[in-house]
Design a protein around this nucleic acid. Structure first.
Lengths: 192, 192
DNA sequence: TTTCTGATTGACCGATCGGTCGGTTCATGC
DNA sequence: GCATGAACCGACCGATCGGTCAATCAGAAA
């Protein structure tokens, strides 16, 4: 329990911000939860905005790091997509806060999230495109659309559970079924 | 200019809430923008929460009404999906606030949005399922997943423009290309 | 021991928040 | 003309917000 107080503040902010968003979380709330004086927060972080950005940065970093390892393993492009979707699903399932932070950032019009994973996505798009050129994948669509679609769907699966569970509660009874069917839906849409 | 002040307040709240979300919009802000006294807002709406709910209700209603008309026209299920996606895209493009409101509601865990369009989605799912039974559409996947996927993707296309535009700015140069390719991707994923 | 620096605190600030209150204007029915 | 109730306003309230500041504390350097 000898983590520095700064770490402690950050950890509390991580959770509170992820759960309630920027403006529903007050500095006093964080201070109380972290068991420190309010002014200590302003000592370590210039202001609330910077604390928010730092928290966001933390989640964004965790996300890109988690995804970066994928691209070098699989050579079969179809199998790569399958595995990417699966691992992204598992990752968000284990860290739903990440998806929530992206959602907050999007509503704010934050452009940093795009800067961050742009190289990652561009790389994936290129892989798909060469597979298109080689005839392994159907041509005629922008690969980025495919990636955007499945990332978005997986994110919202966890964010909007309150919504979709009323469409069909089975969606959430067996998450594995969901992702498996979503993957097959996606794959059979691109086989040439 | 003879709209009642109540309407005026609601109209202003509609825009401000959609742009900034619940907690970034203050009653004073709405009052000033609407050119009325602050207390008038509390005269017409019990409190901020109720005003927010009323605004949300307004958008949700507009959304369901816009979608309801679709189901009776087209008999070919594939064509129905195509048209549904296209019209939903056009609708959100013309009313991006709707998507934003759903996004806010989701982050809050609001369950009302699900209650609202559940019958709509259930009806669409059934149509797809009978098409599956008749062999017109590939079997083996939950139709709700298909619907959820394309609604989600379309919503986020407009909400997260700040993000995806950095993945590939072409996505937003020709919105028609985007939705056309997304539709074809979806359709070719379900043809039997 | 003294000095210096960063960590930490509690008291405090002005601004703004959602909301209330007392009162005025105004349309309508009697 | 007058009573009534809704529409409407400005002044005001307590609470809380993000943020500041002077002071203390702990430990390393000298």
């Amino acid at each position: 329990m000898n983590t520095s107080k700064r770490q402690q503040i950050l950890a509390v902010a991580l959770n509170l911000f992820a759960e309630f968003g920027f403006s529903h979380v007050s500095i006093s709330m964080i201070a109380k939860e972290a068991g420190v004086g309010k002014s200590l927060i302003f000592h370590h972080f210039n202001n609330k905005e910077q604390l928010w950005n730092e928290v966001k940065h933390h989640y964004f970093l965790a996300y890109t790091e988690a995804q970066l390892s994928l691209f070098d393993q699989e050579k079969d492009p179809i199998e790569l997509i399958r595995k990417s979707m699966h691992s992204y699903f598992n990752y968000v399932q284990a860290n739903p806060q990440v998806a929530r932070f992206f959602a907050y950032a999007h509503l704010e019009g934050d452009e940093k999230c795009g800067e961050m994973d742009q190289p990652l996505i561009r790389r994936g798009s290129e892989l798909i495109q060469t597979a298109q050129d080689n005839g392994l994948i159907r041509k005629g669509f922008n690969p980025t659309i495919l990636i955007m679609s499945f990332i978005t769907t997986i994110n919202q699966y966890f964010i909007a559970q309150c919504h979709f569970t009323q469409w069909d509660h089975r969606l959430y009874q067996e998450p594995d079924h969901f992702i498996t069917e979503l993957i097959e839906l996606t794959i059979s849409g691109i086989k040439s």
